[in-house]
Amino acid sequence: MLTTVCSAVTLLTPATCPQEPTPPRFEAAVAIATPAGPVRLEQPGFAAPCLFDVDGDGRRDLVVGQFAGGKIKIYRSTGQAKFAAGKWLEVGGKPAEVPGVW
């Protein structure tokens, strides 16, 4: 009887308490910059970044959408989380634009 009762009781120890995940820690934010200066968008801003290898060189480039004209700027990776000055993504020789952004 005693054995059955003991086996039915779950001892509440730190190992068995449901725990909130430990919050991640970050270094202080650093503004991404290129040799041409910090990444700054045309008015009114609203930067939407992502990383992917645009030019197929094995390094992920920084691709940033902006509100003005729905244009997209590409900052090619130069290695070690550094990027070259940005150039507009072009289609047919003109900056690509996502309609209806404004």
Partner: peptide, 16 residues
């Protein structure tokens, strides 16, 4: 007034 936007990197640190 000049509005703009930047991109910020927050590098994750290892757990304490």
């Amino acid at each position: 007034m000049q509005s703009t936007g930047s991109v910020w990197l927050l590098r994750q640190l290892p757990p304490a």
